[in-house]
Design a protein around this nucleic acid. Structure first.
Lengths: 218, 218, 218, 218
DNA sequence: CATGAATGAGCATTCATTCAT
DNA sequence: TATGAATGAATGCTCATTCAT
């Protein structure tokens, strides 16, 4: 009840620290154990706080996950959009390479994100929103190039943007986040080259004689 | 064994009925509630059997899931391999269309499958194995056409097979299995056309002057 | 409904076989897994009969255990009372040696017996009754030798009989039935010598000239 | 940690109370129902705590049993090692008498202990370890007196220690812990006298002048 | 703000026993 | 007699959440 001069600040600092600890711990725990297998107890233990303190900063486990993921996923999609070189083919290389690298580095977070999204509608919504700009950016890219007549006329840019975005995302997921962590995989360089190749041919203009398309066997 | 005249048949029929009820119930429950949220109790209740009966037909929850999924997923990937028309472009259309349709129809099962895979290493393994033939088939297709010189020389068929397979899978997942069930989506015809288009240009031969590749915006 | 000449006999023989199989299987299962850990399913599987058949021959698990044990334990105590040599010290040696041997050979059955007795009053009662002659025999022995003035005057034969009987029984139990099965133990010869020594001095009078040791009845 | 003025004490007291209630309840339940028949639910009900609280204080049922028994059994074997009178024969009397009394008073716990040991290898191990000092102490006693030439030369002290220890233990078990609780038994005084008598003659040298019996130290 | 003891609903799994055939 | 499918009660354990201090 006495008037405290600078106590509030210290208290606030303390709170921030605790919040930071908890967020950090939650991130680590979700990353290593996944959404459902992560427990509040594990998180508070990792954060060296009391069990109850968790509920001072998060409404519940779901909320903590959302907060962790919002931050993490934003950073991940951003990392994947790092500024790129001037040369176009190389530019695409850099972008894809960055995205794959982020995926490989945060395997656990991606797994947790998808797991969480499947168990919790709010997480799902959040993810969809964080993901949208990623696809929209591809669409904008295609649109712009269409105006420059570099894109094949008949390309449905909306569908193509979704398809190419999905291709990268899912390829990365299946390649890096699924299967045994230490498993042998196609080396990243080769993967990037292949993806760039598919991208370029899929979207950009060129003489593509339909007659050349062969029969697809079963 | 040789004691009962023709009763075994009756018993057997009863057993088959129970098995069918349980499998059906398990399928429904997994489909509507997901992997983790599905409980043995819910399944047996839905099947109108005693709780313990579940363990007469499944080793455990995971096993039930595997059995449900093996059946369902196999059917799903097979649908995408349905015999197809003579015209190659149409053939691809039919295959993709079938795959997307199945996906749209079994949104819940796919969600459950991925959720399960992320929570249970065995399920993950099972899925990877069910999925492999799907990708391998694409690779074989590309290889065969390469020998017919219909495929671009520089195409890395392994990477491309994974990439194109992933594209379809993830597109389908993101498009049909994520988001609100009733949400408005791009109409399926347009989607199929777009995907076929990307496929054909990505893999098959044509003059694609690198010079034509434009700058990619950020 | 027709008059069957020798069908009954065959049927009876079949029944005996089933009964025998079940009893044998039950014995094995109880011996290897103990009372509580043994399950009806394991027993019927071992006996190659249907689950339900078990209840044709036994009222329940407890009953099966009682039947197995009655037989087995009787045999065990009897084996331990095998006819013995004429020389008294050696006679005692033979008797103790036999008892210990039986114990060592049927470690599992003893464990199961005691476990069962502790969980089931009927088993307990049965055991007490099977055990009683064992102690009474010792008591009779001491009494007889008292009349021959070979026993110390002040010996309370009743208590001594219980004490010496218990000593052997428990020693055997702790030595052979408890602890790791393969554990190193004091070699049996030395054990027998020690026990004989304690017995003789505990009960018999004066300087124990081997000649003084009387015949042990059976 | 430094936040709460003196509340921790109150909380701590509360926690101690709960711990005490649970331990007490567990003890009672194990004593009256045995190891296997005791359930966590029964214990928490008896302790008036929530089911989950049990796992705040015990890792699992086995752990609770171990904790109950460690406490009880230690006390029981110690009772048999209570400081004793100067007169050696009386000293032995006191020790044996104490042991038997404790046994008679805790019939249920002994039963549970043995039952538990037969069902759970860890409990068995724990018991063997609690029991060992009891036997070793006897052995040390005999060894010491051997040096004072009060022990018969030919006595195998290791075997004798096991044998005499077993005798007392098993006698007590069979006499007090088995059979109907209210059954008529040989009166305790007579039992003690008999056991002492056997002990002394079994182990000590020659004509047993009471004076010759040495002090039994700890 | 922080603590951590307490709660209790929830779940997978086992198994003795029954009974229709 | 024999079968084996079906039953369902019972139990140990986890963990998100609350709340008195």
């Amino acid at each position: 009840m006495a008037y405290e001069p600078q106590q509030p600040r210290r208290r606030q600092r303390r709170a921030e620290t605790t919040a930071e600890q908890l967020l950090q711990a939650a991130r680590t725990v979700f990353e290593t154990r996944g959404y459902q297998a992560a427990t509040v107890g594990t998180i508070t233990k990792a954060a060296s706080t009391a069990h109850g303190t968790f509920y001072l900063y998060f409404r519940n486990k779901q909320d903590a996950f959302a907060k962790v993921m919002e931050d993490a996923v934003t950073r991940m999609y951003q990392e994947a959009q790092a500024p790129w070189a001037a040369h176009p083919r190389d530019a695409l290389r850099v972008a894809l390479s960055g995205f794959l690298q982020v995926f490989a580095d945060h395997r656990g977070l991606w797994r947790a994100l998808i797991e969480g999204a499947l168990q919790d509608a709010e997480i799902e919504k959040m993810w969809m929103e964080l993901r949208r700009p990623f696809v929209e950016r591809i669409e904008r890219l295609l649109e712009r190039n269409r105006q420059a007549s570099l894109i094949r006329d008949e390309l449905d840019t909306t569908v193509a943007a979704h398809a190419l975005g999905s291709m990268v995302e899912w390829f990365a997921f299946a390649h890096y986040a699924l299967g045994e962590p230490g498993e042998d995989r196609v080396p990243q360089d080769r993967v990037v080259d292949g993806l760039v190749d598919v991208w370029l041919h899929a979207a950009f203009a060129g003489t593509l004689a339909p007659a050349a398309v062969p029969a697809l066997d079963r």
